[in-house]
Amino acid sequence: MESNLTVKAPTIHRARLAWSLYINYFIHGFGLIILAQNMTSLGAAWNSPLKIVSFVISGVGIGRLLSYLITGFLADLFSRKAFVLLGMSAYLAFAIGIPFSHNIYVAYFFAILAGIANSALDAGTYTTFVELNGGNGAATILIKAFMSAGEFVLPLLIAQLTANGLWFGWSFMTMAALVVINFVLILPLSFPLPNQSPAQEGSGEKKVKPNWVTTIALVLYGYTSMAVMIWFTQWISLFAADSLHFSDGQAHFLLSLYSLGSISGVMLIFALLKRNVKETHLLISMNVIAVLALLGVLVGTSTVMVQVASFVFGISAAGGIMQVGLTLFMRFFPHHRGMVTGVYYFFGSIASFTVPLITGVLSTTSMRAAMTGDLVVGLIGSALMLVVLISERGRHHG
């Protein structure tokens, strides 16, 4: 029997598989912003105002909310590869369908499909990286770097199309071509067996079972870790212009510094995880640093201080710490990694839906009130990670 099991074990081309999965997230970087970047052209194509185009974009968030729990649960029942291919197929349909849609209802369907693509890719990819690396989640952090690269390249491509008077749809066709090429590359590859408990944890720590307190704290962290980033990117420029009296250029530069910090944070966190720094220690320290950086933005007495604080906030809050939280969550539930991913990012999707509503209400008081709300969310996130750390230590000593 043992020899039969050995024969059935798939041969994994680790480097090829990892690169193909990362390329998917470069493409996903396109998918995150391609509708917003083409709003004017899409409005003209659909003969609709920008308000209607914005409504269509909201379909992406609806697609995520509808599908995260389902794809996460099913990814544990079926293969990871099936959900990666499902996500790629959905993105292909989206990329081809949107520029040829002449009806906003059809376009809304394709936008929902993009949200489903996002959730299917997450369910199949994050789990695969953890299983590919024996429980170590360092590789998942680089996903964010490839997403950022896609978000960087797409606006340059659209700017070139516009400058040369070319059809806006070529940006979607480029996305579709990348999906097809990567589909061909990934199709023959084998994936690791799903939901295998790692023989040895990357950090050599004793395995412990989570209690309900730890589980709830990590689920809620799925919300706060996403909310703190969305909150900042939505309001930092407006806050800087209104409350700090920055010029328009200075206010927008803060967001650029945040993005640079995010890329730097990815490299830093990846290096720390490779050195087997405990996820709980990393989560506590990065969340506390993010809170201090937000405090620096709010009470900044000089332009340089606010700029440094924005950069540090990018490193600590947007450098992949959300992915670290997911890796820790999956470590507690090694036989339900797909379901855990779905639940975690479902709460992240709730954040993307509710933060604009909450901040909109706060902004009626003042821009400072809106921005201070982000500090409160950061403090809640830090408290949740403190709960996880205390609970984990209690079980080790219990």
Rank of each mutant, 00 (worst) to 15 (best):
N182A: 00
G249V: 12
P198E: 12
S237C: 05
A163V: 03
V213E: 08
S197I: 14
N211S: 02
N211F: 01
G169H: 01
Q250G: 07
K206D: 12
F172N: 05
S203M: 11
K207S: 13
M229G: 11
A251I: 06
Y223H: 00
T214A: 10
V208T: 13
V208Q: 13
A176R: 11
I158D: 08
A251R: 01
Q196S: 05
V184S: 07
L189T: 10
Q196W: 03
A241Y: 11
T215F: 09
Q250D: 09
S243T: 15
V180N: 07
K207T: 12
S237D: 06
N195D: 02
H252V: 03
Q250M: 09
H245Y: 07
K207D: 11
P198V: 12
L254K: 04
V184I: 15
V213R: 13
F172P: 05
L154R: 12
L244P: 03
L185K: 05
L218A: 12
W231D: 15
F232S: 06
A240C: 11
H245C: 03
F253N: 13
W212A: 01
E201I: 12
A163S: 07
P188N: 04
P192A: 04
Y221W: 14
F239D: 03
L185V: 07
N195F: 02
T162M: 12
S247C: 00
F239E: 01
P198A: 13
L238A: 14
F191W: 02
L254W: 10
T233C: 08
G249Y: 08
G249F: 10
A163L: 04
L254D: 06
P155Y: 10
W235R: 15
P155H: 11
F168C: 04
Y223F: 11
Q160C: 13
D248G: 09
G249W: 06
A176Y: 11
P192S: 06
V228Q: 15
A241V: 09
A251K: 00
V179N: 04
E205W: 13
N164V: 03
S203I: 05
P188H: 05
L154P: 06
V179C: 03
V179M: 02
W167M: 02
Q160Y: 14
F253K: 13
M226T: 10
G249I: 13
V153I: 15
F239K: 01
L178M: 10
G204M: 02
H245E: 07
V184N: 04
W170L: 07
V208F: 09
N182E: 00
K207R: 15
T224M: 00
L187P: 07
L154G: 09
Q250V: 07
V219S: 03
T233K: 14
A159I: 12
L156G: 04
